[in-house]
Simulated assay, not measured.
Amino acid sequence: MAIAIKGIEKRFADAPVLRGIDLTIADGELVALLGASGSGKTTLLRILAGLEWPQAGSVTVDGRDWLALEAQRRRVGFVFQHYALFQHMSVRDNVAFGLTVRPRASRPPKGEIRARVEALLDLVEIGHLANRFPAQLSGGQRQRVALARALAIEPKVLLLDEPFGALDARIRKDLRRWLRELHDRLGMTTIFVTHDQDEAFELADRVVIMSDGRIEQAGTPDEIYDHPASPFVARFLGGVNELPAELAAGRLVVPGADAGAVTPPAGTDGTATLFVRPHEIDLVADSRAPARIRNMLTSGPSIRYDVDLPGLATPVEVELPREAARLRNLRRGDAVRLRLLRGRVFSAHGAPLPPAAPSPERHRILEAAL
């Protein structure tokens, strides 16, 4: 089902929660609403489910006005973070619940309900647990029951609110992969809320980053990671260094660092900020360089360096693969030159600056660094 959200505004008392949300979701797409607590993502999900109503805006699904429909008429499957299972019911009865409480005129026959429940339990790979009660299940098993119950009503849209938030890291990772495979098999339009960047980027076709009731950026995981639309998005993704820079005559100058491999914006001069991630920096021993290694930390397959650069209050974080770090044989206190391999340039006002076409010379510098 294709969803069109236009101009959605929502306030609780005098506090604005959603400030004009515009978003289109394609039929069969899996979209993640990603943001910190209070960004408005769960409120938007509840509006789609019919559990909240906006003060302004519209929601249409396949051209039909969803705000004119009560929740039960929208045929939405909703999966909550904390499962919301009926503790006194077996797994089988929990999954069947949405079908058994339908009005008699639309309620399937008992045999059909039984067959649908069995098929769903097999689909989510918990058929052997049909007679158990929620208290006898692990967290991951309970979440599968909740998902099967949401699917039992044959929803037009599947909505998931922090579906793996209550689970430990290993189980979350396993269930993420399983849910992506299930989505691909069913082809259902799915929207899920999360504050976990890894979860959003691994699962979603498209990620919508929200902050303070607004959409900061929407795009594929690669688009958002490679081309953050604002300093907020670059910071939200985490693990980024902010380096003061100057743009002059087609050159990007970062004091104390070699920015020759970074393609500068076209036709723009003035003060800027270069956002560069730790793994996008190389270190070269150079006794004449102003930077010094303050600290080193081994982190599995990589080595992280904290590098003091004159003029910066906080050290620059650099991450090298373990083998590359061994070849450089750097130690605490060593003088080093920072070679910036790539980055994203924003103006002093926070506007993203589009890069110029990279020159053959910059290609040569980048290839040599890599």
Rank of each mutant, 00 (worst) to 15 (best):
G50N: 10
V17H: 08
V336N: 08
H183Q: 15
L203W: 02
Q143V: 00
G7N: 14
D196V: 03
M188K: 13
V79A: 04
L175F: 05
D306S: 14
R172T: 05
H349T: 14
V79K: 06
P265A: 11
A68W: 02
T194E: 07
D93P: 03
A4E: 15
T190V: 12
G98D: 01
D174W: 01
Y305W: 08
P354T: 07
E317K: 15
Q72R: 15
L320Q: 06
R102K: 15
D205G: 09
W178M: 12
F78W: 04
R364F: 09
I303E: 07
V95L: 00
P355T: 07
M296F: 05
V101I: 13
F346T: 11
I365N: 02
R170N: 14
S287L: 06
A245C: 07
A266S: 14
H349R: 12
R176V: 03
A356M: 14
F97M: 04
E216V: 14
E317C: 11
V262G: 14
E202Y: 01
P321F: 08
I191Y: 11
V336G: 05
L309H: 12
V145G: 04
I25K: 10
E317F: 11
L175V: 06
R235V: 05
E125Y: 07
V76I: 15
A148R: 01
G165Y: 00
I303G: 00
D27W: 03
P352W: 12
L67A: 07
Q72Y: 13
V276A: 12
L99F: 04
A335Q: 11
R304Y: 02
V240L: 07
H349I: 01
T24I: 04
L44H: 12
H82Y: 10
A257R: 09
H363S: 10
R19Y: 06
L120P: 01
V345P: 10
T298S: 11
T42N: 07
P163Q: 07
F201P: 05
F346Q: 12
A71K: 06
P315A: 09
G219A: 05
A49C: 14
A169Q: 14
L309W: 09
A285T: 04
L137R: 01
T298K: 08
